[in-house]
Simulated scan of single mutants.
Amino acid sequence: MDLKQLKAFIAIAQLQSFSAAAKMTGISQPSLSRLLKQLETEMNVVLVDRYHRPLQLTAAGLFFYDKISALLIELDAITHMTQRLSAPSKALNIGFVPSVLYGLLPEVIAIFKRQNPDIEVNLKDISSYQQIEALKSGEIDVGFGRFAHQDPWIQQILLRHERYLVALPKAHPLANVKEQRLIDLASSRLILYHQTHLPASITASSISSTNSKKTKQRVEPIADSVTEPLLYLFAQHGVTPLRTSKVSDLQVALGLVAAGEGITLVPASLQVMRTKQISYQRLIHENVTSPIYLHTLKDFIHPKVPDLLSAIYEIYEKRGITYRRQQFV
């Protein structure tokens, strides 16, 4: 069994066609067929049912594909990391989710560049979960995200928690209420904008109904598993919004709020957006926050990442932001 055989099998399994796999890999159909046959002979297992069109994997083939494809992805990650260790980049490639760009990230980058004038900095707009694969492939060296990750290749530091604010149209009845409660927002249309969800292990058993006990307003039952981030925040307080809409990103959500189509929750750094049409108000719930994480690889830390972390903490000190100083290991 060799790598060429495994890659041939993966291509055939994914495309369900010898001709399509040949085109993708640049290997002739007879050669692909021979590599697959060699693999099956060595294993003494039939992996592909050749009598169906499109081709189908046998039960053994499905099991083997599931396991071996994960191993090949890991092998690719190891290869990229080894190449980077042998020839470290002179640039620092930083991934970020758009919401942190409206916060302190520009100041952090300015300080970092001033202290490291010889390093090239490249910023890439990329979602929290996409950053994990981008770190493994070498597309980025470090990432600012909003979600915790459980990945054996990645190490993560919680930088701080940022309070959520309610974004309401200026004409909304609650637009001038300085301290908002989630239960009072349940009848307004909630605009959802996250493209990635929380892990499915978050269940209703962890949800508190404290707020619902303090009010006579009826609260709808909470689903067994709430993974949409904004809905989860409501669910933590025993609240289910009566109406929701989903849009592609945060900017679109704020555009709809400005147009009077609903409300949403945003990290406090976003309160500078569309202030003529939107009223941003504080929530009384102190635990309704959006975390900011910094993550990088466990086995390969770009030599300038510690300087970036120092720049972050320097800004926090100047702004009086509460944080716990940490270092990557």
Rank of each mutant, 00 (worst) to 15 (best):
L192W: 02
V97Y: 00
S137L: 04
S205W: 13
L270R: 03
Y323V: 01
A268R: 07
V257Y: 04
K213H: 15
E133H: 06
A87E: 14
A235T: 00
T296F: 07
G262K: 06
G238M: 00
L165S: 02
N93L: 07
Q5L: 08
R189L: 11
R243G: 07
H161P: 02
P98T: 05
Y280D: 03
Q56M: 14
R319H: 14
R160A: 05
G260Y: 07
D151P: 07
S17C: 11
F63T: 13
E286N: 04
K216N: 13
L283Y: 11
S245G: 14
L165G: 03
Q180F: 08
E40K: 07
H237S: 02
L32T: 09
L165R: 05
Q326N: 13
P152I: 05
I132Q: 04
I278F: 04
S33D: 12
L233E: 09
E228I: 01
V239M: 07
P173W: 12
S19L: 09
G143K: 02
K213D: 09
G61L: 07
L159A: 00
A110E: 08
S279M: 03
K124Y: 06
T227I: 02
A134I: 00
H302Q: 05
L165F: 07
I284P: 10
F147Q: 02
G103V: 06
S19F: 15
K67Q: 15
Y293L: 03
L256P: 04
S225H: 14
L39K: 03
P117Q: 10
G238E: 01
S69H: 08
E220Q: 14
T25I: 09
E139H: 05
L198K: 05
E220V: 08
V177H: 07
S206W: 13
